[in-house]
Amino acid sequence: MTDVAALAGVSQTTVSLVLNGIAEARVSDETITRVKKAAKSLGYVHAVRRAGNGARHDNGVIGFLVDEISTDPWMAIALDGLREKAAATGLDIMTFVTSGDAEAEATAIRTLGKLNLKGLVYGTIQTRAVTLSNAVMGQQTVLLNCYLADRSVPSVTPGEVVGGRSATQHLIDLGHRRIAIIQGEEWMDASKDRLKGYRQALAAADLGFDERLVRPGNWEPSAGYTQTQELFKLSEPPTAIFCSNDLMALGCLEALKEMGKSIPGDVSVVGYDDREIAQFTHPPLTTVLLPHFEMGVMAAELLLERIDQPGLQPAQLKSECPLVVRASSGKV
């Protein structure tokens, strides 16, 4: 699949959507044709497609164990992708919110075992390393938005470093040289990786790293608001601000407006996540898509492949985080 993506000039996520027949609403006809042509030229036959119409999986169930599903939309979006892919192969999804509790996980798996359990997708609302209970380790399992430290179980996580780099590179391409970043909580994988991508983009453009332009945050609008005010106390304030999520970008936009700054005339702003609200800010927010729907599809695909071929090596997949350009970013 990686070879097909390289030949077609698209992401592995796009290849997955096209070859699973669920790309029509998200991918152009020209891209679909290009992916199929690349797959044919390489002789690539999709493993799940070899299962035919899904009859071999009929009446089976995939368990979706998740630590949290209500505080943020991410696992609900991933569930949509997981369910869409599973339904195409005749499988149902049953979801259990277990809060990472081993006893709750064991109870869920016992319930699933009465329903012809085929395997588990184990998801977390925050991208992080996990320790799996014995009950989960005893099943065919794929990790979603999390991973084991020893990488012994297949996983699907977002490509956060590339996402942070693409957001920063976008601002560099617009001519910005003083680019600030407002981080999330520093101990979290997402915050560390987005900062790493930011630093990589600066280094590739021969722009010096200025610690004064790196501000601590907490994912909330209040942090974006407060840290934007702090940035404009500098003798050389930034001309662009990369906020590590859309909620902090909302606070950033509000602070800039209160200071009388034009967006993007005086300051460009880029967020991260592509929450629904991002398209309704004034101006609409340039951001990076956190691809949880595609990750759900990829997790289902990995699990189905392992059901068909139990001896496969535990793949560790990164899903592309594409840039979504709107009106909050512009040239210097």
Rank of each mutant, 00 (worst) to 15 (best):
S16C: 03
V18M: 05
L19D: 02
N20P: 00
G21M: 04
G21R: 04
A25F: 00
A25Y: 00
R26E: 10
V27Q: 03
V27W: 02
S28K: 04
E30T: 03
E30C: 00
E30W: 00
T31M: 14
R34V: 02
R34L: 08
V35R: 09
K36S: 02
K36Y: 00
K36N: 09
K36E: 13
K37W: 00
A38S: 10
A38Y: 01
A39D: 12
A39R: 11
S41A: 15
L42G: 06
G43K: 12
G43H: 09
Y44G: 04
Y44P: 01
H46V: 13
V48E: 04
R49H: 04
A51M: 15
N53G: 13
G54M: 04
G54H: 13
D58A: 15
N59V: 00
N59S: 11
G60H: 08
I62G: 02
I62F: 15
G63P: 01
F64T: 02
L65E: 04
L65N: 05
V66A: 10
V66Q: 07
D67F: 08
I69G: 06
W74Y: 14
M75V: 01
A76K: 01
I77E: 14
I77C: 02
I77T: 15
A78V: 01
L79E: 09
D80N: 15
G81S: 05
G81H: 08
G81C: 10
G81P: 10
G81Y: 07
L82I: 06
E84S: 10
K85S: 10
K85N: 09
A87P: 00
A88Q: 11
G90E: 06
G90R: 05
L91H: 01
L91P: 00
D92F: 06
I93S: 03
F96T: 05
F96D: 00
F96W: 15
D101M: 06
D101V: 09
A102M: 06
E103S: 13
E103T: 14
I109S: 12
T111S: 12
L112D: 12
L115G: 01
L117T: 11
L117K: 14
K118F: 09
G119P: 11
G119N: 10
Y122P: 00
Y122T: 02
T124Q: 11
T124M: 10
I125W: 08
Q126K: 12
